[in-house]
């Protein structure tokens, strides 16, 4: 699977060998994507893997659930309608080609 991160500094990083089943946070952290920190380890409690999903991918990715929305609300100054936490996006074949922009820290 191919996944593209636009890092905070604007430089794109495309990962060609992403595997279904892993999360977007683990993928980004493993590949050293700038701004994907994942401090809480994927527990949806720290908002350090915040991304903006490209509009054309929003439907496929889906919206955050209530718990994720609450965590995103703690960084409301950088929150957008297409905000998601990378740790809550599990990669699956339909997301091949996904493109996200890493949000700045709040």
């Amino acid at each position: 699977m191919k996944i593209t991160f636009v890092q905070v500094n604007g430089v794109e990083k495309t990962i060609e060998d992403a595997r279904p089943g892993e999360t977007l946070m683990i993928l980004g952290r493993t590949h050293g994507v700038e701004g994907i920190l994942g401090d809480c380890g994927g527990g949806c409690s720290c908002a350090t893997c915040h991304v903006y999903v490209d509009p054309e991918w929003q439907t496929a990715v889906g919206p955050p659930d209530e718990i994720e929305s609450a965590t995103l609300d703690t960084v409301s100054n950088v929150l957008r309608a297409n905000s998601r936490l990378g740790c809550q996006i599990v990669l699956r074949p339909e997301l091949d080609g996904l493109r996200v922009t890493v949000a700045p820290s709040g």
């Binding site: 809480c40 703690t74 100054n77 709040g106």
Partner: peptide, 21 residues
């Protein structure tokens, strides 16, 4: 506050409080 979640009461980084939730 728009950046409430960036406080450091739970720490930051690899030793961030594991029981924060």
């Amino acid at each position: 506050r728009g950046n409430l979640g960036t406080h450091v009461a739970f720490g930051v980084g690899v030793h961030r409080c594991i029981g924060a939730a």
